[in-house]
Simulated scan of single mutants.
Amino acid sequence: MAFIISLLMFPIHERLDNKMPTMRNTSALLSCVILTVIIVIPLLLVFTAIIQQGSSFSQGVYHWVAEGGVQDLLSQPYIVKIINFANSYLPFDTLEPSEIAQKVAELASSFGTHLVGMSASVVGSATSFLMNFGLMLFVLFFLLRDHDRIISSMRHIIPLSRSQEDRLLDEIEQVSKSAVMGSFLTAIAQGVAGGFAMWLVGFPGLFWGTMMGFASFIPVVGTALIWIPACLYLLLVGDTGWAIFLLVWSVAVVGSIDNILRPLLMQGSAGMNTLMIFFSLLGGLHVFGLIGLIYGPLIFAITMVLFTMYEEEFNDFLDKQDNN
């Protein structure tokens, strides 16, 4: 990951290096500091706000349940019709509004406890992230400082011609940039658009916008994991207009960001069309986890380049094989 980030950070580092040609350690250190300011400080601010909004949201849900909000909801005429329909046709025990209200109250009372546990988990994950980030910065410092020497050593070891090496390294750089831009900028854009809509309809915008951003990394379903329950909730409490607005906004705006922006940012690498991008993202997630959103397209693109170079190098042999 440090190697990939060094490719992304190198234009900034090169400017610093040109201004301080005799101070390579200082320029590499400044590049690492800039990266830290860009990534870590905003993340800490966002996570703090998320925990605050999540806590306020859980308290609001608990008070709504305690003040009889569930009973008022279940007494709505269309909810009564749905329960009666379920009791008439579905093959299980009858649904009683009092039992449903009791179950919701139990969930609401335990929600705060779960949120505290999730907050502790987030803090633990943040600690682990900071440790790993510190290790990555340590490696990144040497990759930036000794960039030319490392690239020269790689060129010397790789058993390819200079033109093939240039092609392979250029492809790694291009796909690294497109994978980062395609995955993370799409998640940020969807989170901002979704959070704005959530704020308009009355939900904590920053909290649910961030949840939408994380959900956008999940293939196929993505942000629908967040906005579909939100639309259903608005329908149940009688805010039909806001529910329709959130549905239309999520499908037309948030969904179009994923369908247009991600493929657009990840085009132009090793002939990767939208379908191949999808499968490389899916395979990367399955094998490597979240970081596979970068590794999947990178591995796929390098493989395609190697196949193309092999075909060009042994084209005559392959034509003879086809004719035999």
Rank of each mutant, 00 (worst) to 15 (best):
V180W: 05
R24P: 03
T223R: 01
M20K: 08
F111I: 07
G195S: 05
A49M: 06
Q59K: 15
K320S: 13
K81G: 09
N18K: 15
K81W: 05
L73Q: 02
L264N: 13
I151Q: 15
F3R: 08
D322N: 15
I12N: 02
A193Y: 01
T113H: 14
V305E: 02
L232Q: 05
I50C: 12
S216I: 02
M9L: 06
A105M: 01
K177H: 07
N315A: 11
L169T: 01
W199Y: 11
M212S: 08
T210P: 07
M276H: 14
N18T: 07
G209V: 02
F317Q: 13
S125D: 09
V254Q: 08
L235M: 11
L290S: 14
S121G: 13
L30E: 06
S27N: 09
W64M: 09
G124F: 06
S152W: 09
R149E: 12
L169W: 08
L140H: 06
F203E: 03
H156D: 10
P77Q: 07
V37Q: 15
S163N: 11
G68S: 08
V116R: 15
Q53R: 13
I50V: 11
S55G: 10
I4D: 01
G194K: 04
S161E: 07
G69T: 03
M266R: 04
P11I: 00
G284A: 14
W227T: 03
L43C: 14
G296P: 01
N25K: 14
A189W: 00
L293K: 01
T303A: 14
Y89R: 10
T48K: 14
L168M: 02
I12E: 06
L206T: 09
F141I: 04
R24Q: 11
G117W: 05
F57D: 07
V104L: 00
A2K: 03
L45N: 13
Y62M: 04
I157D: 06
L281H: 13
L107T: 10
M181K: 14
W208G: 03
L115M: 09
C231D: 06
K19G: 03
F111K: 08
N323E: 15
A301M: 02
A187Y: 06
G134T: 03
I157G: 00
G194Y: 00
Q321V: 12
F207W: 05
N25W: 04
E99F: 12
W249A: 06
K103V: 13
F47N: 09
F314G: 00
A108F: 01
F10R: 11
L30Q: 07
V33T: 10
F300C: 15
T26K: 13
V40D: 15
T186D: 09
